[in-house]
Design a protein around this nucleic acid. Structure first.
Lengths: 337, 337
DNA sequence: TCCCTCCGTGCAATCGTTACCACACAAATG
DNA sequence: CATTTGTGTGGTAACGATTGCACGGAGGGA
């Protein structure tokens, strides 16, 4: 049916082994033969059968990406998309394809990963979210399969990860608000079990403590990565007797919800409330007022993750198992009067 | 190394053929054997090697998704993401995985597709964008490889596609504005070569014509799927001597740019300008004012596309090669005074 | 009782590559 | 000139599954 290595061999007047050697650039092949074979391959439109190749070489040149489950409602659209672009770019550069998968429940997800690993469908796995007590990490760690986590996992300190210094990032964001003269600063968080929520909350507390400012626990609202969370948080916070004058918000999307709610109630940003978000998604530049946000180098996270995974697969030593991508506070209208 | 069908066979006291038959639910296998083998498979944590399987069966159970090139700057983040979720859901339900790929240039992209097809890396391909004179469609059509286009391709009317009735959708959006009493209505478009731009423009013109309203060509601005386009279009349109009082905007993202620009210049929506967008992304509910938008059933598009492709792969006849997903106008504050 | 049919299972070829081993021949060494 | 070293290539056995063919035994009909 389709053109195989044998067809090329016959047409070029050599053996299949020789063709295989030409493809893998074996040193002991004569220049003339190599050229002739290459020409024939192009003539016939030959491409090696990936499965035959994979069967013998035990490599698929596919990286698996496990998406967070939509069911958990913590699907960070915009963040995820940028990360994926970064992963894809680096994977392609290194000759890898990307297989994306998800599960509809935790056990389903684990089953999927087992299938991918045991069925040799991918050479390595990228986990896009990291929570504490993650059974996926546990499994991958146990069977010794190459994987990289985006974020960090306190339960498996040796697992390779790519992450921001989220504590420092939140510290910087909070510090920025303190520098503007704010004393009552609130924090709108994501789901507790995610390390990113925990870390940013820590950074916020640190900055407040260091500045000698006290935190009312009413100022800390937990939710999900959705505008609804921001909207709801806003109405709770604005009804407090002693309400904050500024907010650090876990994600720009959530901050949009806050902004919208404030607008609706006739409050003005930054006069009545200052806002700082995270992720610096492209829309943040185009709200009214534009949103101050911590740029966490989302694309670069993806890029670096793929690179780390590929190194792990080819058994190159990693000089550091925990890579930190630098962040940068982008100050815009939502936080300066 | 890893557990194979032979290990299972040995442990269960049967031949590898029998194990294979148990897996594929061959009818002529005794119930007892089937149960015993199944138990052993679970005990050993056996998963069939996907490449050995694929080599002989000539099926990979992988669908390829070709992303639009970022270089073209027509990467519709939010649209794409929802579609992908739909594709993924349906693919998983049918036992398929998803491989995503893109190219950095047109020829690179074609090369990637050739590699996927000829190298038997995927069983079928989904094209996420459809433009006129698309070399990918030409190639896939020529070699007779299963594929489905999201959108439509005027050059290949027989190719299976999943699409909206974009002419009608834009007609409805425009009609809605006309019903509100507007007479000078503008249109902010995406790249000309995309069929979606062409179709929506057609629908807009149709509605205007039918209502006996004349269109000034100054009211039609072409750009890309970016906020910048909206921002720029807005400033051009507001400087016209006879400026429109309402706009149909090709995508919500672009409409955000318009909205932001208007806010910045102190114009108010909907008093000074009414807006209708497309795609009804989740943020549209949370702008100030909330954005009226045509919901095109993005998730369902993905879902249906995967379903159609899988049918094509298994050579089931399609009762219709061109599937239309219904749209729905969601009226919000940006278009009613 | 004999033959035919059907059921459950094993044997062996096959899918398209890779990689080890062998071999012919040329060049270099003593 | 004999021997070693090296170069370019072919033959063949894997890799881990599927599948057509064959075969022994049980059951049913004549």
């Amino acid at each position: 049916m389709s053109v195989t290595i044998k067809d090329v061999a016959r047409r070029a007047g050599v053996s299949p082994s020789t063709v295989s050697r030409v493809i893998s650039k074996h040193p002991r092949i004569s220049k003339e033969t190599a050229e002739r074979v290459t020409r024939v391959m192009e003539e016939l439109g030959y491409h090696p059968n990936s499965m035959a190749k994979g069967l013998v070489s035990k490599a698929t040149y596919i990286l698996g990406v496990i998406l967070p489950r939509p069911a958990e409602e913590l699907f960070q659209n915009y963040f995820f998309h940028e990360v994926l672009r970064g992963i894809l770019a680096q994977a392609n550069r290194s000759g890898y394809d990307l297989l994306i998968a998800s599960g509809s429940s935790e056990s389903d997800e684990l089953e999927t990963v087992k299938r991918l690993v045991r069925g040799r469908r991918v050479d390595g796995i990228i986990l896009l979210s990291s929570k504490t007590k993650d059974p996926l990490i546990h499994f991958l760690n146990e069977v010794g399969f190459p994987f990289v986590i985006i974020g960090r996992s306190p339960d498996f300190p040796d697992a390779p990860t790519v992450d921001n210094d989220n504590v420092q990032a939140a510290y910087d964001a909070t510090r920025h608000l303190i520098n503007q003269g704010h004393e009552r600063i609130g924090f709108v968080s994501g789901p507790q079990e995610l390390t990113v929520s925990q870390d940013r909350l820590t950074g916020y507390r640190q900055a407040m403590l260091e500045a000698g400012l006290s935190i009312s626990e009413d100022w800390i609202v937990e939710g999900e990565f959705l505008q609804e969370t921001g909207y709801r948080a806003m109405s709770m916070l604005m009804n407090l007797p002693e309400r904050p004058t500024a907010l650090v918000v876990i994600d720009d999307i959530v901050a949009f919800g806050v902004l919208h709610g404030l607008n609706e109630l006739g409050y003005s940003v930054p006069q009545d409330m200052c806002l700082v978000g995270f992720n610096n998604i492209s829309l943040s530049e185009h709200t009214s007022p534009p949103l101050t946000s911590v740029d966490i180098g989302t694309y670069q996270i993806g890029y670096m993750t793929a690179q780390t995974l590929i190194k792990t697969i080819s058994k190159e030593p990693l000089h550091q198992t925990r890579k930190i991508i630098p962040h940068r506070l982008i100050v815009r209208g939502s936080s300066v009067k």
